[in-house]
């Protein structure tokens, strides 16, 4: 310490004096009290004015300003959050609208296709019905002619059998018998 070297010369000189007058505890050497109290009061006054005039108002201002900034930032953040929520809502709404539109278009397309299909099916059904009717008519004609042919064959066969057995065939009776058989 600079003081030590500085005071070293003086210390040597007043060593004898100090040893003679100062009691064992330097704290109880009342001859130094006035000096200490004088300098202490200057120190305290200086510290008090520096703190109360400059430092403390400044730090207080900085702290309250920071508090204000933080409050403002929090408010701004909340504002932004609200905006974000609003935007999300709008986006959701647009999405829902688009979805509904798409559903509507798809439904329309489906309905149109269904209508076309119905028409085509109906047409095909009528055609099929006509073809079926024709076919049935042809089958009925064929069946009728077949029955006639069977009756004629049966008559002929019956005449021939009767003739071969030596009897004289009554054409009327044979025809009646064949008709009765074919019905049974």
């Amino acid at each position: 310490m600079a003081t030590e070297t500085h005071a070293a010369a003086g210390t040597a000189a007043d060593a004898a004096h100090g040893a003679a007058s100062a009691p064992g505890m330097p704290q109880l050497d009342f001859s130094t009290w006035g000096n200490q109290i004088f300098w202490l009061s200057i120190t305290l006054v200086v510290i008090y004015f520096v703190l109360s005039r400059i430092a403390l108002p400044r730090i207080g201002a900085v702290l309250s300003e920071r508090q204000g900034t933080i409050m403002k930032d929090i408010a701004a953040a909340e504002d932004l959050k609200a905006k974000a929520i609003e935007a999300e809502k709008a986006y959701d709404k647009a999405l829902a609208d688009a979805r509904a539109e798409a559903n509507r278009i798809a439904g329309e397309a489906r309905a149109a296709i269904q209508a076309d299909l119905d028409v085509a099916i109906a047409k095909a059904d009528t055609e099929i019905a006509a073809k079926t009717a024709e076919g049935e008519k042809a089958i009925a004609a064929i069946r009728a002619s077949a029955v006639e042919s069977v009756a004629a064959v049966a008559n002929d066969t019956a005449e021939a059998i009767v003739a071969s057995m030596g009897g004289k065939a009554d054409a009327k009776a044979i025809a009646a018998a064949v008709t009765a058989r074919m019905k049974g």
Partner: peptide
């Protein structure tokens, strides 16, 4: 207890009320 001794900072051997001492320096 020697470390608590109050010494004049700029020589001299008397401590008046205005003397600059090591206590003054550290204050």
């Amino acid at each position: 207890m020697d470390q608590f001794k109050i010494k004049p900072l700029f020589g001299g051997d008397t401590i008046e009320w205005y003397t600059v001492t090591n206590a003054t320096l550290w204050m």
